[in-house]
Design a binder for these strands. Sequence first.
DNA 1: GTGAAAGCGCTAACAA
DNA 2: TTGTTAGCGCTTTCAC
Lengths: 333, 333
Amino acid sequence: MVTLRHLAEQLNVSVSTVSKALSNSEEISKDTIERVKALADELNYQPNRVALSLKNNETRTIGVIVPNILNRFFAKSLFGIEQAAAEMGYSIITCMSNELFDKECDSISLLSNGSVDGFIVAVSEETLVNKKSQHLQQLIDKKIPLVMFDRNLNDITCDKVVIDDYKTTFDLANMFINQGRECIAFMSTIDDLNVGILRSTGYEQAISAHGQQTPIKLSIKKGLDYQEQIKEFLQEYPKIDVIIAADNISGTTAVNVASSLNYKIPKNLSIIGFADEVVSNLSVPKLSYINQNAVNIGSSALRLIVEKLKNKHLEKPHLKIKIPVDIVHKGTT
Amino acid sequence: MVTLRHLAEQLNVSVSTVSKALSNSEEISKDTIERVKALADELNYQPNRVALSLKNNETRTIGVIVPNILNRFFAKSLFGIEQAAAEMGYSIITCMSNELFDKECDSISLLSNGSVDGFIVAVSEETLVNKKSQHLQQLIDKKIPLVMFDRNLNDITCDKVVIDDYKTTFDLANMFINQGRECIAFMSTIDDLNVGILRSTGYEQAISAHGQQTPIKLSIKKGLDYQEQIKEFLQEYPKIDVIIAADNISGTTAVNVASSLNYKIPKNLSIIGFADEVVSNLSVPKLSYINQNAVNIGSSALRLIVEKLKNKHLEKPHLKIKIPVDIVHKGTT
DNA sequence: GTGAAAGCGCTAACAA
DNA sequence: TTGTTAGCGCTTTCAC
C-alpha cells in the first residue's frame, strides 16, 4: 500500500507537505503540488480509509441488519439501501439475523465498536415476538443513530420507515366489497409478525364493519406443504371469491393451485398478494399485487440515517416515514 | 465511546497497563487486572475496531461484489458468505454492480484502500461480455486476495468457486435421452453469460452426440413478456416433450404456462430448471430442479479467502473448487 | 512555502 | 509490576 510517507521520501519533502499538496492547500507552491500529484497518480496513491476513519472518528459505513435476505422484500430493501449508500459515498456492512435474537445481538455488538457510524435494522421474528429491545436501547443510549424499517418495535424511540399495513388491507377489502364480492378470504404465512398482524386486522375490520360477511382466514404453517394447505382451504370454503394474500409467496401459490383446480380467475375468484413484477410473472394468470416499494423503503432509510449523521449535534425529533404502496392490477383481479 | 484512556484515568494507571490487563498479561498484578476488568465491564468498554485495524493492518472485513441481489442465486450466495463470515469473526461489505462494469470498478476502488482485507467477486454481465479485467488485475497486482465465484473471468488467475455448468446440462440431456424422450428443448434468459453458454453447450453437445435429435433452443428476451415467448415457443414446436431451463425463472414460468395450455406434466412434458425448494413450490405441479447449492458456493468462497489471508506469506497455487449440484425430482420429471 | 509535532485508540518493545 | 515511548497513516496547528 502506497502511503504519504512513500511519496514524501521519494520527493524529499515532508509528509505534511504531501498531505497539503494533495488537498490543494494554498500554503504549498504550485510546482510542489504538481510534482506531488504526478507521483501520487503514477503510484496510484489512495488515502488509507482506516487511518482517515480513526482521525475523523467516522467510518462512512452503515451497519445493516436484516432477518433474512432470501425473503424478496428484504433483498429489495437491501438493494435500495446499497444503491442510496453508493450514491452518497457510504458503504454498508450487512449482517443477517436469520430471524434469531442472539445473532442480531451479536451482529450489533460486533459492529458497535466504531466499525460503523449508524445502524439500519429490521428486527428478527424472535425479537419481535418476544419484544426484546435491550440491544437496540443500548445503541440509543450510546447515541449511535438507528433507523428501523418494516419490522420495528414500538418500545424503541427512533426514526422508522414503514408502510401502512393496516390501511392497505383495510382499503383492499373494501375495494372488493364495493365490487360486490361476497366471500373475501385472507391468507398469510406471517401471522406472528407485527406487519402480518396489522394486515390481518385491516382485512378483518373492513369485513366486520361491512356486516354482511365474516372473516375467513388461513394461517399457513411454515413446516408443511403450502399448496396442500391452500387446496384444503379452498375445498373447505368453496364460496370464496376473493383471496387477499399477506405475503409474497402465498399469492402466487394460490393462483397456481386454484388454476389447477379449474377455478376461473379472475371471473369467479380474484387473488391479490404482496409481491412485485417478477413474482407476478410466475403465475398464470399473472398475480395482481400490492407493491410495497421495498427499494424505496431501503433508500429512504439510508438517506434518513445519513441525514441524522450529518446533523448529529441537532436533536431533531424522530420521524416515522410511511412509504405509499401501489396496487398493480394484472390478471387476477 | 469508552477508550482505554478513560479507564486509565479513572483508575490512575497508565493506558498500557490497562491494555495489558485486559489481555491478561502476566506482567500485571492480579489485583490490577481485576480492577481494570471490573471497570471495563461496568462502562461496557469495547476496543475500537478502527484503531485495531490501523495498528494490525487488517480489517477482518471482506468486500463482496455481486451483480444483482434480486437474483435468488446471488441472494443465496451472499447468505452463505455472510454466514461463514460471522462464524469466522469477519464482517462483509456488500456492493452491487447492477450488472454494470463502471459500478463494479467504483466499488472495487472504493474498497481497495484498506477498507477490506480481500474481495469476493461475481462479475457483472457487462464485464463478462466485454471481457474487461483490468480492475481485477489491479487487485492482484496490489496483492489483495481475490476469490471469484459463478461469474468468473478466464483471464484472471485467482481462486474460483464454480459449479460444472457444462456437465450438468450434458448429463441432464443424456438422462432424458435414456428415458426415451424424443424432443428435448432448452430455454434460457442468460444466453449472454458464460454460465449460460456453458449450460447451453452442454445441452447441445449431448443432443448432437446422440444423433437422433437436433437442439431446439429458446433464448428468452429480457424486455419482453416471458410467458408469451414460452407460449409461442411451445406452439411452434408442439412435439417438445422435455424442457431444460437454464435459469431460475423460466422453469417455473414454463410449468405454469404449459399447465394453462393443458399439457400433461410430467407425462407428456417434463420440465427441469435451475432453482431451489422455494421456487419449486411456486408451480403446480412443483418444478423438478437442479440445486446449485448457492449457499455452499458462498460459504466456500468465504472460507477460501480467509484461508488465503491467514497464509498470505505462502504463495499457494490457485484453486478452482467445483461445488457439486443436486438433482431434485419433484412433480415435473 | 515547508516542516515538526500532536493526536485519533491501540499494542508492544523497552525502561524503570 | 507499572509506565514511557514509538508507531500504524492521516490531518492540522503551529513554528520556522
